[in-house]
Simulated assay, not measured.
Amino acid sequence: MQGTTLDGDTISATELDGPVVYWFWAPWCTVCRAEAPTVAEVAKRWEGEVTFLGVASRGPQDDMDAFVVETGTGGIRHIADLDGSIWAQLGVSAQPAFVFVDREGVATGWLGGLGEQQLDDVTASLAG
C-alpha cells in the first residue's frame, strides 16, 4: 500500500516500522470529528511504540486539511485517499473504521467508532 499524505509526501506501508493503527475518516463525518481528539490522545500516548495513520477519503483535500486543524489531529500523519483505493485494499466500506496491524503483519478491522479505553486497550495489545 502506498499513498500521499495531506502534506504531499509519499508514504508506503513498507516504511512503517512495528504495529500500525489505520484510522479511516471522512471530513464531513460527525462521528469521526467527535472521536478525533480521542484518537489523537491515544496516538500521542503510544508514540514510538505504535504508529497511527489517518486515512481520509470521501471529500476534497481542502476539507480534509481543515478537519485536521479543527480536530487537533495534526500530530498524526494522514493519507489523502482521494480515490478510495486504500480503503478498498483494506476492505473498509464506511467510516469511521480502524484497521489494526500487528508486528507480524496480521490485520484486523473494526467498523465504527471506538471509545478511549477500548482504543487504548487494542493499542496496548499491539504494542505488546
Rank of each mutant, 00 (worst) to 15 (best):
G3L: 06
L6I: 06
D7W: 03
G8F: 00
T10H: 08
I11R: 08
I11M: 13
S12L: 11
A13H: 09
E15P: 06
L16N: 07
P19G: 02
Y22V: 01
Y22P: 04
C29N: 11
T30H: 14
T30P: 14
T30N: 14
T30K: 15
T30M: 15
V31W: 13
C32E: 03
R33W: 13
R33Q: 15
E35L: 10
A36T: 02
P37R: 11
E41M: 08
E41T: 09
V42N: 01
K44G: 13
R45N: 03
E49T: 12
L53T: 05
G54C: 08
A56D: 12
S57M: 08
R58C: 06
R58S: 14
G59V: 03
G59E: 09
P60Q: 12
Q61M: 14
D63T: 12
D63N: 14
M64C: 15
M64S: 15
V68L: 05
V68P: 00
E70W: 04
T71R: 06
G72I: 00
T73D: 03
H78T: 00
H78Y: 03
I79T: 03
A80E: 06
D81N: 11
D83G: 12
S85R: 15
S85F: 11
I86Y: 04
Q89H: 12
L90W: 13
L90K: 13
G91P: 06
G91C: 10
G91W: 09
S93K: 07
A94S: 15
A94K: 03
Q95G: 07
P96I: 14
F98D: 01
F100S: 05
R103F: 08
R103C: 11
E104H: 06
T108N: 06
G109P: 11
G109C: 03
L111K: 05
L111F: 08
G112Y: 05
G113F: 08
L114H: 03
L114M: 15
L114P: 01
G115H: 05
G115V: 02
Q117Y: 05
Q118E: 14
Q118Y: 10
L119I: 00
L119Y: 00
V122Y: 07
V122K: 04
L126G: 02
A127V: 09
G128Q: 11
